[in-house]
């Protein structure tokens, strides 16, 4: 089994990344399921990462408590900014969450306790593979239950038409807030997990590009199911490794994939009927 050990020591961070990215993609799936485009998930991930790293480094909390804090603090922040901002719809919400993300990045960049642009170094590597696996499984289970629940159906009707939903007696504002806060919690925990296996975090990992990456994963995989975001996360985590030969042009590939998926596969990568139709019509959409 020596080859397995070698293999694992080379690729375990990659596998961990897939798990963390899947969590992030699921966190944005939650708001998208409610018809909200929030670009704040990278910021929530960052808040979770920094809070957990600081608690580990400076306060010496046990890992379980650290992870809980990584979920709770972003949730509180999401609650505070969500109440006023979620009144906004569509592009306005996207802009507001984008601005929030920028504010978080600038704050982290300038605070002393966060290490400024250099970030934090020497975070204990407490994250084990099974932590990620367990949290991912728990999240998927929870979200799957949620989808079939009253709340999940309310999300769906809000996404289709929020005016009609409110006329049917759904408290639209409260449901949106719930999706936003829960999404922030998942993203925060993902940030905490990530910080405790990458050993090092810096403000650069939580900017606009990362928010876009998370969004791309969800869109690429398709937001029609829970498997979609995970599929997207897996593909977009593995692709850069496979595309190393493209060097600086790797980003080009990401961008083109996003455009092509939006143009030709509006329901995500895996949509057998659509793919069949594409080929049947000679590749024209």
């Amino acid at each position: 089994m020596e080859w397995l050990d070698n293999y694992w020591s080379t690729y375990n961070t990659l596998v961990y990344s897939i798990g963390v990215h899947a969590l992030l993609a699921l966190s944005i799936w939650l708001t998208l399921a409610c018809g909200l485009l929030s670009l704040a998930n990278a910021a929530f991930m960052g808040i979770g990462a920094y809070v957990s790293a600081l608690l580990s480094l400076q306060a010496g909390w046990p890992f379980a408590a650290v992870l809980a804090a990584a979920g709770v603090v972003p949730a509180l922040v999401a609650l505070i900014i969500g109440i006023p901002t979620l009144r906004l719809s569509g592009v306005y919400l996207a802009m507001a969450t984008l601005a929030f993300g920028e504010v978080v990045r600038i704050i982290v960049l300038n605070l002393e306790i966060t290490g400024g642009p250099e970030g934090l170094n020497g975070i204990p590597q407490s994250t084990q593979g099974w932590h990620i696996l367990a949290i991912l499984a728990f999240t998927i289970y929870g979200l799957a239950r949620l989808r079939r629940s009253r709340v999940g159906r309310a999300f769906e009707s809000i996404r289709e038409d929020d005016v009609a939903a409110s006329l049917m007696g759904i408290d639209v504002a409260r449901h949106k807030l719930f999706a936003f806060v829960l999404g922030a919690t998942i993203a925060g925990v993902a940030g905490g997990l990530n910080a405790h296996f990458t050993f090092f975090i810096s403000p650069r990992e939580y900017g606009f590009e990362n928010a876009v990456d998370i969004l791309t994963m969800a869109i690429l995989g398709g937001i029609g199911s829970l498997v979609g975001p995970m599929r997207g996360a897996t593909i977009l985590t593995l692709l850069p490794e496979l595309l190393r030969f493209l060097h600086e042009f790797r980003g080009v590939f990401n961008g083109i994939v996003l455009v092509l998926v939006v143009l030709f596969l509006p329901k995500g990568l895996w949509e057998p009927r659509r793919i069949k139709a594409l080929f049947a019509r000679g590749g024209r959409a």
Partner: peptide, 15 residues
């Protein structure tokens, strides 16, 4: 959707 597509364009151009 168009907004998301233009994000893709932006990434492509800057990379």
């Amino acid at each position: 959707i168009p907004m998301i597509a233009t994000i893709g364009v932006a990434i492509t151009l800057s990379s």
